[in-house]
């Protein structure tokens, strides 16, 4: 592959490169950040990247929006983009919103019960609970074990 075709390959697939960048950014935020709200933001970026992938698949070179003209006279020479991926992504967006809403609702409840939304704090609290439970368990069974 000479340099010009490499360049064309790169530019021609630019939306796919951006998809990969966005996807990795989102995934990194989910894994690396300890704040629960930030994790949800990362998850959103991750999901949005998939929307971009689908929309890129549906794009046809020189294609216009797949909408019926008002007079319903369809010109057979006009090229349309593939509408199906758009429809699929409409569904995926709804799913994404539901997930975000539920995630945030859970965070509100976590804040009420634990008083924090930082993973480190919560892990510490949970380890404390587990320690107490094991203590009680040892005391209860200590005379036998």
């Amino acid at each position: 592959m000479d340099s010009s075709t490499t360049w064309e390959f790169f530019v021609g697939h630019v939306s796919y490169w951006l998809f990969i960048v966005l996807m990795m950014t989102g995934l990194y935020i989910v894994v690396a950040k300890g704040n629960f709200v930030k994790k949800i933001v990362g998850l959103n970026i991750f999901q949005t990247s998939v929307f971009m992938l689908y929309i890129s698949i549906g794009k046809v070179d020189g294609g216009t929006a797949p909408i019926y003209p008002v007079d319903l006279n369809i010109d057979p020479d006009v090229v349309y983009s593939n509408p199906l991926p758009h429809v699929l992504i409409l569904t995926a967006i709804v799913v994404g919103i539901a997930t975000t809403a539920l995630g945030l609702a859970l965070i509100v409840r976590i804040r009420e019960e634990f008083g924090s939304i930082e993973e480190d704090d919560i892990v510490e609290i949970e380890q404390g609970i587990a320690r107490d439970e094991n203590e009680r368990y040892r005391n209860a069974t200590g005379n036998r074990a």
């Binding site: 996807m23 999901q47 539920l102 976590i110 634990f114």
Partner: peptide
């Protein structure tokens, strides 16, 4: 701790479902 369990599952489950949809 059910809340954090549900939250963790939400994160993991959504990543799984998104991989599936990719």
């Amino acid at each position: 701790r059910a809340l954090t369990a549900a939250y963790d599952y939400l994160i993991m489950g959504t990543i799984g479902a998104t991989f599936f949809v990719i």
